[in-house]
């Protein structure tokens, strides 16, 4: 049972990786990375039960709590870049 779930998760990870590598747009890749993080949480949880070490689920908890920070950083990166470009263009016209 756990083996089947693990295999399915691994296949999904491979598909997400394919999207991240092929793109084509940046947003495909951001989404793929986010999804890959979610799948890692699932994989770690399943393997923790597969090995009979459910206390190791702390690791999945760590990912679940802080994995999205990277995506927020991407949002902030694009936002500040857009603001800066606007400011630079404004300064150039003056």
């Amino acid at each position: 049972m756990y083996y089947v779930v693990t295999l399915a998760t691994l296949v999904t990870m491979a598909l997400a990786l394919a999207r991240a590598v092929m793109g084509p747009t940046v947003y495909d890749r951001v989404l793929a990375v986010n999804m890959f993080g979610t799948k890692t949480v699932l994989l770690v949880s399943v393997i923790a039960f597969l090995f009979g070490r459910p206390d190791f689920i702390d690791l999945a908890l760590a990912y679940a709590l802080i994995n999205f920070i990277g995506v927020f950083a991407v949002l902030e990166f694009f936002r500040t870049r857009a603001v800066r470009r606007e400011a630079d263009e404004g300064a150039g016209r003056r």
Binding site: L17, A20, V21, A32, V33, G37, V44, L59
Partner: peptide, 13 residues
């Protein structure tokens, strides 16, 4: 940078 994130997740797994 995005792919580095995936590499880190893979290594952790």
């Amino acid at each position: 940078v995005m792919l580095m994130g995936i590499a880190s997740l893979l290594i952790a797994a």
